Amino acid sequence: MNAPTTQAATGLALYDRTAVDAAAAVIARYSTSFGLACRLLGPRPRPHVRNVYALARVADEIVDGPALEAGLTPVEAEAVLDRLEEECLAAVTLGFSSNLVLHAFAHTARECGIGPDLIEPFFASMRADLRVSRHDAASHDVYIYGSAEVIGLMCLQVFVNAGASHPVAPAPELVDGARRLGAAFQEVNFLRDLQDDRVRLGRDYLGLAAPEDRFVVLDRIDRDLAAAARVVPELPADCRRAVTAAHDLFAALAARLRSASADDVRVRVPDAVKAGLAARAMLGFAPRGAGA
């Protein structure tokens, strides 16, 4: 008996698959920690979350160095970012892009209900990186929303809607948790990258008047992590483990930042500890602080 033949994907199906693979390759190159958490997602949301983060990564690279290293001026880099936003919005409307990362993101956005209300604030914050060197309290909050909270909200749209016939609005408590988790992640990164942001990029996101002021930021991070932890059990089951692992990794980073000196804030979590956090999440434990 002849073996059954399997028809290979062609046309749009092949292009879609290639776009998703391209987004996954971007993420694999740039973030081992994110890759670990993403592998804990179920197969339903996993490719969509990669698509979201791949777009964010490409936009970051336009404003965080590589574009300038290639010889672009800040004005030229902003023009590139503007074109990326225009192409992104068009791709979401049309369902197609010649840019593979945008094509993958557009597929996710259309299926999961990610619209201009989330896309435009993200690009506005990326644009601020080329325009604002020192943030005050108001611009800090606007930046955090666009650069981090909306990424959490995009992921929440994926968690709730991937595979559904029609996207629905997530519950308000999940929206609050997604925003606060995204904000906590970003502020941990601000503290870890404090010196690099100031010296290499010429940016000050936190406006700390004295080294000990970072404890005010750490207290805010702890409150946001605790609030986010309490709603993780309300997420779909195939998302909880990944969110728990990511939450606990950043909680561990925050704890190490609290015990580090102000001059040595580029802390990291050892690989063995990361593996333990992932194993704990895999076993179904709630995020640390969920009962706070």
Rank of each mutant, 00 (worst) to 15 (best):
G177E: 04
G177R: 02
A178Y: 14
A178V: 02
R179G: 14
R179H: 08
R180Y: 07
R180C: 07
L181N: 10
L181W: 14
L181E: 11
G182T: 00
G182Y: 11
A183G: 14
A184P: 15
A184C: 11
A184Q: 10
A184H: 11
F185L: 04
F185P: 00
E187G: 01
E187W: 08
E187D: 11
V188P: 01
V188Y: 06
V188W: 05
N189S: 09
F190S: 05
L191R: 10
L191Q: 03
R192S: 09
R192Y: 07
D193K: 10
D193N: 12
D193I: 02
L194S: 13
L194I: 04
L194D: 10
Q195S: 12
D196M: 01
D197N: 10
D197R: 09
D197K: 10
R198V: 01
R198T: 07
R198L: 13
R198S: 14
R198F: 09
R198N: 12
V199I: 12
V199M: 06
R200P: 05
R200W: 05
R200A: 13
L201S: 05
L201V: 05
G202H: 01
R203K: 15
R203A: 06
D204T: 08
D204N: 13
L206H: 09
L208H: 00
A209C: 08
A210T: 13
A210K: 13
A210Q: 15
P211D: 02
P211V: 00
E212V: 09
E212R: 11
E212F: 08
E212W: 12
E212M: 05
D213S: 10
D213Q: 11
D213P: 06
D213G: 13
R214F: 03
R214W: 04
R214I: 06
F215I: 00
V216A: 15
V216N: 13
D219H: 00
R220P: 12
R220V: 03
I221R: 00
R223A: 15
R223D: 15
R223E: 15
D224H: 15
D224V: 00
L225W: 10
L225Y: 11
A226N: 13
A226E: 14
A226P: 06
A226C: 11
A226W: 03
A227N: 11
A227C: 11
A228H: 13
A229E: 11
